Simulated assay, not measured.
Amino acid sequence: MISALDCDVRPGSGMGIFELGSSLWNVLDLLRRLQHSFPQVDIKYDTDAPSTTPIILHIRPHLDLLFSGKQQRLHTIVLGKLRLGDPPVTLRYKDMVLSSPEEVLKRIFISRTFGPTYPPPGDDLRADLRYPGVWFSFEEDGMGDGLKGIQSEDRMHEVKRVIVSQKELDGEHRDALGELVECAAMDGDISRVIVKVHEGVTLYFHPSRTKPVHIRIGETTAQDLTMDLGPPMRVHYKDDERMTIHAMSSASNNSEPSYFYNYFQHGLDFLLSPSHIVAKIILHSNIPGSPLFQRYKRCNWEIEGTPEDDEDDTPPRKRFYDRFETISHFLSPREPPPSMLLDRTDDEEAITLPSATTRLHGYDGIILEVSESSQVVTVMLF
Rank of each mutant, 00 (worst) to 15 (best):
residue 5 L to F: 01
residue 12 G to C: 02
residue 15 M to Q: 02
residue 16 G to E: 05
residue 18 F to I: 06
residue 18 F to E: 05
residue 21 G to F: 08
residue 23 S to G: 09
residue 24 L to S: 03
residue 28 L to T: 15
residue 37 S to I: 02
residue 41 V to N: 03
residue 45 Y to H: 07
residue 47 T to Y: 06
residue 47 T to W: 02
residue 58 H to N: 11
residue 61 P to L: 06
residue 64 D to T: 10
residue 67 F to H: 10
residue 69 G to Q: 07
residue 74 L to N: 06
residue 74 L to Q: 03
residue 74 L to F: 02
residue 75 H to P: 06
residue 81 K to A: 10
residue 81 K to G: 08
residue 81 K to W: 12
residue 88 P to A: 14
residue 88 P to H: 15
residue 90 T to F: 07
residue 90 T to R: 13
residue 97 V to F: 07
residue 97 V to S: 03
residue 99 S to K: 00
residue 99 S to N: 13
residue 99 S to E: 02
residue 102 E to Y: 01
residue 105 L to P: 09
residue 106 K to H: 04
residue 109 F to E: 12
residue 110 I to R: 05
residue 110 I to F: 07
residue 112 R to Y: 12
residue 112 R to W: 10
residue 119 P to V: 09
residue 119 P to M: 06
residue 120 P to N: 08
residue 122 G to A: 13
residue 123 D to P: 00
residue 123 D to V: 10
residue 126 R to W: 05
residue 127 A to P: 07
residue 132 P to N: 04
residue 140 E to T: 14
residue 140 E to V: 14
residue 142 G to K: 04
residue 144 G to S: 15
residue 148 K to F: 02
residue 148 K to C: 06
residue 150 I to P: 06
residue 158 E to H: 03
residue 159 V to N: 04
residue 160 K to I: 06
residue 163 I to W: 00
residue 164 V to F: 12
residue 166 Q to V: 00
residue 168 E to G: 13
residue 173 H to Y: 10
residue 178 G to K: 00
residue 184 A to K: 12
residue 186 M to P: 00
residue 197 V to G: 04
residue 197 V to M: 02
residue 200 G to I: 10
residue 201 V to D: 03
residue 204 Y to M: 04
residue 206 H to T: 13
residue 207 P to S: 11
residue 209 R to W: 12
residue 209 R to S: 10
residue 212 P to M: 00
residue 214 H to N: 09
residue 215 I to T: 09
residue 216 R to V: 07
residue 218 G to Q: 13
residue 219 E to V: 15
residue 220 T to W: 05
residue 222 A to S: 15
residue 222 A to I: 02
residue 232 P to L: 00
residue 233 M to T: 13
residue 234 R to Y: 07
residue 239 D to K: 11
residue 239 D to Y: 00
residue 243 M to W: 03
residue 246 H to E: 12
residue 248 M to K: 06
residue 252 S to N: 11
residue 252 S to I: 11
residue 252 S to Y: 08
residue 253 N to C: 01
residue 255 S to A: 06
residue 255 S to T: 00
residue 257 P to M: 05
residue 257 P to N: 08
residue 258 S to V: 00
residue 259 Y to Q: 06
residue 263 Y to C: 07
residue 264 F to N: 12
residue 265 Q to Y: 04
residue 267 G to Y: 00
residue 272 L to A: 01
residue 279 A to S: 12
residue 282 I to R: 15
residue 285 S to T: 03
residue 285 S to D: 04
residue 289 G to I: 14
residue 292 L to C: 02
residue 293 F to A: 06
residue 294 Q to V: 13
residue 298 R to E: 09
residue 301 W to M: 03
residue 302 E to L: 15
residue 302 E to F: 06
residue 302 E to K: 15
residue 303 I to M: 10
residue 304 E to K: 11
residue 307 P to F: 13
residue 308 E to T: 02
residue 311 E to Q: 07
residue 312 D to I: 10
residue 318 K to I: 08
residue 319 R to H: 14
residue 323 R to M: 13
residue 324 F to K: 11
residue 324 F to M: 08
residue 327 I to E: 03
residue 329 H to A: 15
residue 334 R to W: 05
residue 339 S to N: 15
residue 344 R to M: 09
residue 350 A to H: 15
residue 350 A to K: 14
residue 354 P to G: 13
residue 354 P to N: 11
residue 355 S to G: 07
residue 361 H to R: 02
residue 361 H to Q: 01
residue 363 Y to P: 12
residue 367 I to L: 10
residue 369 E to S: 09
residue 371 S to H: 03
residue 371 S to F: 04
residue 372 E to W: 01
residue 376 V to L: 02
residue 377 V to Y: 08
residue 380 M to R: 15
residue 382 F to T: 01
